Amino acid sequence: MTTTLNLATVPGHQVLATAGKKILRPGGKAATEQLLTWANFQPGETLLELAASFGESAIEIAKRYKVRVVGIEKNPDSVAKARENIKAAGLSNQITIIEGDIFHLDKMTDKFDYVLAEAILTMQSDVGKAKILSGVKNCLKPGGKFLSHEMLVRDNAEQVRKSLSESIRVNANPLTVSDWSNLCRDAGLAIQQQQTGNMGLLNLNQMINDEGLLRTVKIIWNVLTKPNLRRRVLQMRRSFQQQGKNLGYIVFISQ
Rank of each mutant, 00 (worst) to 15 (best):
S254Y: 00
I132E: 01
V170C: 11
P11N: 04
S134L: 07
K226R: 09
A82C: 11
G20D: 11
I95T: 06
A119Y: 08
R231W: 10
K22I: 02
L36K: 07
T37C: 13
I191C: 03
L247T: 06
G244D: 03
L91R: 12
L189H: 00
P142N: 08
G71M: 06
D113K: 12
D77Y: 08
T109V: 09
W38L: 14
G71I: 02
E45D: 15
Q193K: 04
S57M: 10
N209D: 14
K107Y: 09
K87Q: 13
Q94H: 10
A187S: 12
I72K: 03
R232P: 06
G90H: 01
H13M: 12
W38R: 06
G12N: 02
I102F: 09
E49V: 05
S165P: 04
N182L: 05
P227Y: 01
P174C: 04
T96I: 07
I250T: 00
R237D: 15
E56V: 13
A117H: 15
C184A: 05
Q194I: 10
E150F: 04
Q235F: 01
D186T: 13
Q242T: 07
N198D: 15
T216N: 09
R154T: 11
S57K: 07
K137D: 03
I72Q: 01
L16Q: 09
I59G: 08
K141G: 08
Q235S: 14
G44L: 08
G20F: 03
H104V: 07
E118Y: 10
R68V: 14
N138S: 14
M199V: 12
L247F: 07
L213N: 14
E211P: 11
L214G: 09
G135C: 06
D126K: 05
R230H: 14
R238M: 04
I208S: 07
A89Q: 01
D126L: 05
N75Y: 14
V251W: 06
R185S: 13
P227E: 05
F252N: 00
Q193D: 01
Q94A: 12
L224W: 09
I208E: 06
T32I: 08
L5F: 13
L213R: 11
Y249I: 06
A52P: 02
R169L: 04
Q159N: 08
A80D: 11
E211K: 12
L175M: 14
Q14M: 08
D155S: 15
R231D: 11
K63W: 07
K107N: 10
L91T: 15
E84T: 12
L7P: 02
R230S: 13
R232S: 10
Q194G: 04
A89I: 10
I86N: 02
R232W: 07
L50C: 15
Q14P: 06
K22A: 08
M108N: 01
D179W: 11
L164T: 02
A39V: 09
G100W: 00
L116M: 14
S125R: 09
E150R: 00
T109C: 07
G100H: 02
T9I: 10
F112H: 04
N203F: 08
N198F: 15
